[in-house]
Amino acid sequence: MKTIQTLTSAVIAGLLSIGAVPTMADDDTMTGTDMGDATRTPGPTGTPATTGQGGSASRAGMVTEPNYPQGVSAVTFIEEASEKNYTIINAAELALEKESGVAEDPQVREFAQQMIEEHRRLNHKLTELAAQEQLEVSGSAALMDRAQRLVLEVREGDSFLEVYANNQVADHQALIDLYERMANTEDGEVSRFAQNALAELEEHLELARDLHPQAHAERD
C-alpha cells in the first residue's frame, strides 16, 4: 500500500506567512501554461521523476524538454512563478519535518531553510510588482487551490531524499525556463526582475542537484 504525504498544511502556512497576492475573481481563467495543473510523480527508486511539464528529472538531476510556450505575459509570469514558489516552500517545510527522515541531515536542512527564506522573498517581490504594475492576478485562494495539486508523493519503498531532490531540480528548472522567457521580453520592471533573479535560481538548481543521493555517495 503506498504512503502519500501531502503538503496541504504547509500550503496554508506558506500562504499565511507570505501574504495575499492582488486579487481578481477566482473564476477568472489564467492564460498561458498552467503550472498548477501538473502533478509531480516520482518513479520507483533509481528512476526519473516526471515534472508534469513535458520533461523529466534524471538521477543526475537534469530536466529535459520543458514544455513552455515561447512567450509569456507579465500576468502569467507572476501567477506561475508565485505558484511554483509556494510549492518549493511547502516541499521544504515537509523536508524539515521529522517524519521525512532527512530532517537531521545538515545539507538537506540548510537547503530547505534557504528555499523557504529565499522563495518567500521572491514572492514578496512578485506581489509588489503586481501592485506596482496594476496587474490583476489571482488571489491567494486560487493560488492555494492550484498549489495543492502539486503534491510531493513519497511511495512506500521510495527514498524521500531522492524524490525531494528530483522534484527540486524539476521545479527550479521550470522556474528558470519561465524566468528566461520573461527576461527576454520588453515588459519593463517585470522583465528586469526576471533577469536579475536568474542567477539566484541557477544557484538553487545546482544546490538541488547536489542533494541527490548519488551526489552524496560521490562526495563520500
Rank of each mutant, 00 (worst) to 15 (best):
P69R: 01
D34N: 12
H124P: 00
P213M: 14
A81T: 09
A20H: 12
T64G: 03
H212V: 07
Q107A: 15
A199D: 07
M115Q: 07
M24N: 10
L198W: 02
D220W: 08
G54E: 07
G139D: 10
V75L: 00
P42Y: 07
A91R: 09
T29A: 14
E97W: 05
L143M: 15
A112S: 10
V72P: 02
A103P: 07
T31C: 01
F193S: 02
E200R: 07
R181G: 06
A91I: 14
I78P: 05
N123L: 07
A217G: 08
G61V: 04
A13Y: 08
A130T: 06
I176P: 00
D28I: 09
T41C: 15
T41S: 11
R192Y: 03
V63F: 12
A217P: 04
D220K: 09
Y86V: 14
G14Q: 09
G101S: 12
E186G: 11
T51V: 11
A92S: 14
L129A: 06
D37T: 15
S56K: 13
G36L: 07
E218P: 05
K2S: 11
R120Q: 15
T31H: 02
L126C: 03
A60N: 10
H216N: 15
A130K: 03
L96R: 13
P22K: 00
E133S: 13
L96M: 14
L129S: 06
E186T: 11
N167T: 10
N123G: 08
S138D: 09
T31I: 11
H124L: 04
P66R: 05
E189C: 12
N196M: 12
Q134S: 11
V169L: 01
T87W: 02
E203Y: 03
L205K: 01
A197E: 06
G61F: 06
A74H: 01
L152G: 04
I78W: 03
Q107M: 11
G157K: 06
R120A: 02
D37F: 13
H204S: 02
F111R: 07
N90E: 14
T6W: 07
A20Y: 10
Q5M: 12
A74L: 02
N167D: 12
G19V: 01
T127N: 05
N67K: 04
P22N: 00
N90T: 11
E206S: 04
I12Y: 03
T31F: 02
K125Y: 08
